[in-house]
């Protein structure tokens, strides 16, 4: 469905962020993209949705194809119309609009009023808490509710491909669980293809069906999520589980570093 071939992204004409990244999203599946801070995960999503343009970034090499059509260089508002919708990192709801107005903004590109109305009910069914606070300004919602609103807003656009940028950011573990179960539900019930960017590797690898791991602007490892979960390196670096299967003690891992710091 989505195919990224060897793209390079440059910010401000000088800063090379993605160095030949390729990935592929299969229709109807959840694909996850993992990596440490600064690996280029968000940049990848912005390259797909076209929002790079608003940040002085540019895809200089390679192609991004969505349903067989080249979409790099296309204006972001046109990409939304093609069915690609990005939920940006850090929720980014319209704080001085109420929840319903936020949802209406998500449906901005749609013409079918009846369908929009039905989908608004659908979103409220997925997130009953939003229904209770529908007329409240989004700025006053809690972090979890804002994340729900951001995902709901994306659903309102009826996207074919949903790009989720760290939906777990800054949320309590229980809420993260709730949100991820809804993400899975959306994928199953609405058949929406999802590209999920996460720091929470454990959760992401349980949610997705195929995973990519990025470092320094490149994919360093990819495979089906179950396989990645078994991979020794992934276990050690991303899941925090050592070879023996025991959790590594923080004390042992950092011991020499701490001592060194004290001595020097």
């Amino acid at each position: 469905m989505l195919r990224i071939n060897n793209i390079e992204v440059v910010y401000n004409d000088v800063i090379l962020v993605l160095k030949g990244l390729s990935l592929h999203c299969e229709e109807g599946k959840i694909t996850t993209l993992l990596g440490a801070n600064g690996a280029g995960k968000s940049t990848t999503l912005k390259a797909i949705s076209g929002l790079l343009k608003s940040e002085e970034g540019e895809v200089t090499e390679g192609t991004i194809e969505f349903m067989g059509e080249k979409i790099n260089g296309v204006d972001p508002e046109k990409i939304v119309r093609k069915g690609v919708f990005q939920v940006m990192e850090g929720r980014r709801v319209f704080e001085d609009l109420n929840a319903i107005e936020n949802l209406r903004c998500g449906a901005y590109t749609r013409k079918d009023k009846a369908g929009v109305k039905r989908d608004m009910d659908l979103v409220f069914d997925y997130f009953p808490r939003l229904r209770e606070r529908a007329t409240e300004l989004a700025g006053y919602l809690s972090g979890g509710e804002q994340q729900m609103l951001a995902i709901g807003r994306a659903l309102m656009a009826r996207p074919k491909l949903l790009l989720l940028d760290e939906p777990s950011l800054g949320l309590a573990p229980l809420l993260v669980k709730e949100i991820f179960s809804i993400i899975r539900k959306i994928n199953e019930e609405e058949k929406t293809t999802i590209l999920l960017v996460e720091q929470n590797a454990n959760l992401a690898l349980q949610t997705g069906s195929y995973g990519y791991i990025m470092e320094n602007g490149k994919v360093v490892l990819d495979g089906p999520c179950e396989k990645l979960r078994q991979n020794e390196d992934v276990k050690e670096f991303y899941l925090g589980v050592g070879e023996t299967g025991h959790k590594r003690s923080f004390k042992n891992a950092k011991h020499y570093k701490r001592r060194k710091r004290w001595l020097s």
């Binding site: 929002l51 940006m88 319209f94 107005e101 901005y108």
Partner: peptide
């Protein structure tokens, strides 16, 4: 109105409005 709400959304953040498919 749809355009009115979109205007307020754009006022809040151009980039997020863009990501909604609103032509800023």
């Amino acid at each position: 109105s749809k355009a009115g709400v979109a205007m307020r959304a754009t006022a809040f953040s151009n980039q997020v409005a863009l990501s909604m498919g609103i032509s800023v």
